[in-house]
Amino acid sequence: MLTYLINGISLGSVYAIIALGYTMVYGIAKMLNFAHGDIIMVGGYASFCAMSYLGWPPAVAVLFSIGVCTVLGIVIERLAYKPLRSATSLAVLITAIGVSYFLQNVALLVWTSNPKVYPNIFEKIPPITVGEAQVSGVTMVTILANIVIMIALTLFTGKTRMGKAMRAVSEDKGAATLMGINVNFTISMTFAIGSGLAAIAGVLLCTAYPNLVPTTGAMPGIKAFVAAVFGGIGSIPGAMIGGILLGVIEIVARALVPDVPSDIFVFAVLIIVLLVKPSGLLGKTVREKV
């Protein structure tokens, strides 16, 4: 049982890191960035290429992939989403889906559909034993990375000027502009951070599940989105809790009822939570005004 719990927390941590990206972008740009999952995939491939073809050490490869994804995030935002700032949310959603198709198909052309076997970059870290469960290096790094990212993001949004600007933009774009905040730059920064996080998630996901194909990011992307909604979209601790709960539910359900696809439980729990608390676990309830 403990093993399942730890595996669940590990998978959940990956979801949480992805969900943080979703939640930040949603909180500030008020858009569902469906292409987020595919940025994870790009991050996975970028680090894979850096290690396998260029022979770079893992640490450099990870930094490289964060760089690639950050730039990619900014470019996508500038080219595809910025012209639609004043359009309906549905138009932006469809564009995001278009971007998602685009990234998947470019990946398909560049890297083909043959799965790439991702190297285990944390194999030098010895597994430790907790009670009866063995915790592998990947699991430890994933959980640790999640905690570090979570603290860093909370400090960033709470203490720095940029973070303050982000919160201001998310509250009221118009008023933020009047206060002299560069809204476009702030949104670009949000995409940059979200995409950088996606790159980290990509590396962690591919190390844990070493089968890299162009659609690798799609399902974790959807699950992470569910996690973000689950915890209350727009809330950083919410995304973290939502992600971890989702991972634990998925792994435990898979272990207890192996015949039934675990996704059923994941989505069923989401529905129940939203029916009881429509804004998610930690979401702010917005009163409707007449």
Binding site: P83, A87, A91, T95, G98, Y101, F102, N105, V106
Partner: peptide, 19 residues
């Protein structure tokens, strides 16, 4: 290239019709 073209058409149409 077909799905790639499809994606590009989709994005372009959305950008043009909503700009």
């Amino acid at each position: 290239y077909r799905m790639l073209i499809y994606a590009i058409v989709l994005i372009t149409v959305m950008l043009l019709t909503n700009n």
